[in-house]
Simulated assay, not measured.
Amino acid sequence: MLAGLCHDLDHPGYNNNFLKLCKHPLAHMYTSSQLEHHHYFLASKIIEDKKLLSKLEASEREAVLEEMRYDILCTDLAVYFALRAQLAPLVADRAFNWADTAHRRLLKGILMTTSDLSGCCKPFGVAKAVTESIYEEFYNQGDRERAMGYTPLSMMDRKRRVNQPAEQIQFLSVVVLPCLMLLTNIFPNTSPLMDNCRETQEGWHEEIEMRGMRLWRQDDSTPPSRSRVLLKEENN
């Protein structure tokens, strides 16, 4: 619960790649997962300053903080892909063992990713609103990158916002759905998340179809004149 609450603490609205690009101080402090390390550091300081775990023994506090650190770092998608590569063969071979601490640790990482991306598992109207908010953050980063003389990625480029639906379909296919598949294999009762995600994906497909439809013209609803009818009949 603490890790979930603090996993984006003091997020600046830019991703790790941008921090490295602009030589942000965090990029000098940590070699990887710069934002996630920062989130954990602030969380640990708040917990320490407010004595939130003061009732625990020192060894227990250390264990809780280490658990939080691992869980927060797992919200970095680069870490998620590494965890997924390890957990997927275990699930496919039916070799996942609840008694194995390493297996449970992999699963906890996947649970953090699922929670972090759960906006994709909401009804489409909600998922779309969440996505639009995230894209505005992306576009702000893209604006900064363009001002620095770089060409932003499509998902960061507000000039290419027309690509949003296709990008979301790709993101759901490559990132979210494989995560949910792993989860539902271990926790079958989470299948509604998978169902909602597929419906969201279908909603983005419908967005593409609607954007590709011919625009309505006044002539489509105006009765044709007598001369136009005669001309059409002659041409036929």
Rank of each mutant, 00 (worst) to 15 (best):
R217V: 11
M148S: 03
A63K: 14
E202L: 15
V174I: 14
F187D: 01
W204V: 12
E233M: 01
L182H: 03
E199D: 08
E202T: 15
P188Q: 05
P165Y: 09
S191E: 10
S221W: 10
L26T: 10
R217F: 11
K232P: 00
G109Y: 11
A82F: 00
T151K: 01
K128P: 01
D76N: 10
V126G: 02
P188W: 04
K20S: 15
L73E: 05
L26N: 08
P178M: 05
V91R: 12
T222D: 12
N235L: 12
P178F: 04
L182Y: 06
E145P: 03
S118A: 15
M148W: 00
Q168V: 05
T190S: 10
M1D: 14
Q218L: 13
Q170W: 09
R146I: 11
E167G: 13
N196E: 08
I134M: 09
K23A: 08
H24G: 07
P152H: 05
V126I: 11
N163D: 15
E57W: 00
S154G: 01
D100W: 04
M29Y: 03
L52N: 12
T190E: 06
M156N: 07
W204F: 15
E199K: 08
M210N: 08
E132P: 06
Y80L: 15
C6R: 06
F187C: 02
Y139H: 09
